[in-house]
Design a protein around this nucleic acid. Structure first.
Length: 276
DNA sequence: TGCCAGGATGATG
DNA sequence: CATCATCATGGC
């Protein structure tokens, strides 16, 4: 059972299992986290800015309120789920087992659906540093200011009012009209994401792919990282290539316990074996 | 200048 | 349904 303890400098969370912040926040599932020079992480989600670190004895430390830890950060970091159980199952595969040992526990984050959809639209044919830069500019242009100089992810409703020219300063290029049309669709259908969550994987994927600029990969990343679809194995080119080399005859059976988590380790397992 | 980046799209077999 | 050319931006 997760425990929360209030200290004078923040909140300490214990008994949640494990998490490696370094790999969880840097594996490409999120774009609004940065590490400082002593290795602590700070990031923004759900209109909250927070600093997070692991203590030497494995506690998760957040400078936040008890309420936010309960309502936002425990669900966000997926701390309620028994990763020990899933990782035990995934360890049946040798490659993944080695990756777990080397890189630690990845948590599949539970992010805001609009932010996730929009971020992965921006990610199309792009590289991670620039994706992060575009998103940062977007937040500064249109997001609500939280602390000094820290901005929340812009709301779909505010984005829907813009023209592609109005979005030009963020440098999203040909993706700008996709962002705006997606924002308008999300704004026009307030129940969209809740409905997608209740649908089956195939139908949710199909519906997301009706948006311009949203293909299979963007749809699946949105589903896995914000809509609770643990079963998707996003068709990320790097992961697919890694999988083709490590598993030419198909994925191991154990992956089916948590495909969305397994696919992240496939990437690192490939890298661990000298892959690009 | 040329090439690439954690795709999308539409047209073909 | 698998493949393939084409699209299109900014950074290096």
């Amino acid at each position: 059972m997760i425990k929360i303890r209030e200290t004078k400098s923040g909140i300490a969370v214990t008994d949640f299992g494990e998490i490696s912040l370094d790999i969880t926040l840097d594996c490409g599932q999120c774009f609004r986290w940065n590490q400082n020079d002593i290795g602590d992480w700070s990031g923004t989600a759900y209109e909250r800015h927070v600093r997070v670190k692991k203590t030497a004895d494995g506690l998760l430390f957040l400078n936040s309120s008890v309420e936010d830890v309960k309502k936002i950060w425990i669900p966000y970091f997926d701390l309620d789920r028994d990763y020990f159980k899933y990782l035990q199952i995934l360890r049946a595969d040798k490659n993944v087992c080695e990756a777990i040992e080397k890189y630690g526990t990845i948590r599949i984050l539970s992010q805001e659906p609009w932010e996730t959809l929009c971020s992965f639209i921006i990610s199309a044919c792009n590289n991670i540093p620039r994706i992060k830069m575009i998103i940062e500019k977007y937040c500064r242009l249109l997001g609500r200011e939280l602390d000094g100089g820290v901005f929340a992810f812009p709301r779909a409703a505010d984005t829907a009012l813009l023209s592609p020219a109005g979005l030009a300063p963020i440098g999203a290029g040909f993706r700008a009209p996709y962002i705006i049309s997606a924002a308008r669709a999300v704004e026009a259908d307030g129940g969209l994401f809740d409905r997608l969550k209740s649908e089956g994987e195939t139908e949710a994927r199909r519906e997301l792919m009706t948006f311009r600029g949203v293909g299979k990969k963007v749809a699946e990343c949105t589903m896995l990282f914000s809509l609770g679809f643990d079963t998707v194995f996003p068709t990320d080119t790097h992961i697919i290539q890694a999988a083709a080399e490590l598993y030419p005859d198909g994925y191991p059976e154990c992956f089916s316990a948590f495909p969305g988590l397994a696919q992240q380790y496939v990437f690192y397992a490939h890298m661990n074996k000298g892959g690009k």
